[in-house]
């Protein structure tokens, strides 16, 4: 075993890139936490006392919630009511039902199947790029080899390639290989598209781990594999979580890749199905509203429960769009 001392807590909880946008903001560095309690209170009072600021905040908050709220209310209204009048009428004549959800899940739209497809598509598309990117990021951060800088910059630059530019050739390759219409096309595509960002993010985090930790393990005779698993991996968990959430939301919410590679009935995810429903039966609001929320529930739960990591990941700087 190595005699490496336990790493200082700050490494595990702090995200390297977090200061990226912030740190460069001015001399003197980061002033967070320096404010003493009473002063914070004073500032808060000052802000709250400005009616203009409160007014603006409330107006924006309403504009950002009412659209979703309206559709959510609609999804619980009887379909006859939905056709007849607006959702705000529930205030005067409330009537709610779960029928829309039942219809959407099991009726002719069979959302249950597409829900499973979404899940089956998403999980491997999160795990595969992480395992590939971890290895590559380790090499870029801790193995000295010729052309390392150049290769890393190349990988970094590939983040900006719009995936549109790859779709047609990839599709014909999958066809040649007899993979078309299977989950493998979607898994492979999502994994590959995620790699540049994954490698970049994980590399940044790995670089931030003190060299002394790795050196100490090396002196103790640990090889790359041992260092990777025993020293780095535990410290990288927050970073991995951050990227995993990104990728999860990205894949679950993706429409383009799924349309191109996975539109066959057997593997199409929720997004494709709902987009099609919107195109062909655009006025069946009882199905559309329930379907939309069925597709949103998972990402919203993931997002709300892991928001901390997500924000860190955002602040670590991403240019994927």
């Amino acid at each position: 075993m190595t005699t490496t001392p336990p790493p200082p807590q700050t490494i595990a909880t702090r995200v390297p890139g977090e200061t990226d946008p912030g740190a460069s903001l001015g001399p003197g560095g980061n002033g967070r936490g320096k404010v003493s309690r009473p002063r914070r209170g004073a500032i808060a009072k000052e802000r709250l006392s400005s009616p203009w600021a409160s007014g603006i905040a409330i107006v924006i908050a309403i504009m950002w919630t009412v659209p979703t709220f309206g559709l959510l209310v609609t999804s619980f209204r009887p379909s006859a009511d939905i056709r007849q009048d607006g959702w705000w009428n529930v205030v005067t004549s409330p009537s709610f039902t779960l029928q829309n959800y039942q219809d959407a899940m099991t009726g002719s739209t069979r959302m249950v199947d597409y829900f499973i497809n979404s899940l089956v598509i998403t999980l491997p598309a999160v795990f595969i790029p992480i395992s590939l990117a971890l290895l590559a990021a380790y090499a870029f951060a801790w193995i000295d080899f010729k052309g390392r800088e150049l290769l890393f910059v190349a990988v970094f630059a590939l983040q900006i390639v719009p995936i549109q530019i790859t779709l047609i050739p990839l599709l014909s390759t999958y066809n040649d290989w007899g993979l078309a219409g299977s989950f493998w096309t979607v898994w492979l595509s999502h994994s590959i598209f995620a790699l540049p960002l994954a490698i970049f993010l994980l590399h940044n985090f790995m670089k931030d781990i003190p060299k002394s930790l790795v050196e100490a393990a090396r002196v103790d005779g640990a090889g790359h594999v041992k260092i990777f698993f025993q020293v780095l991996l535990p410290l990288l968990m927050p970073a991995i979580a951050a990227f995993a959430i990104f990728q999860f939301l990205w894949v679950w919410n993706d429409l383009l890749v799924a349309l191109v590679f996975g539109s066959s009935q057997d593997i199409r995810p929720l997004t494709v199905h709902i987009a099609e429903l919107a195109g062909t039966r655009g006025q069946t609001w009882h199905l559309l509203s329930a379907g939309a929320f069925i597709s949103m529930i998972v990402p919203v739960i993931v997002f709300l429960s892991l928001q901390r990591y997500f924000v860190r990941g955002l602040l670590a700087g991403s240019v994927k769009g």
Partner: peptide
């Protein structure tokens, strides 16, 4: 956190 498809439906409504 929601898909653009979902957002599209919300706003179409």
């Amino acid at each position: 956190s929601i898909s653009m498809v979902g957002a599209g439906i919300i706003w179409r409504f």
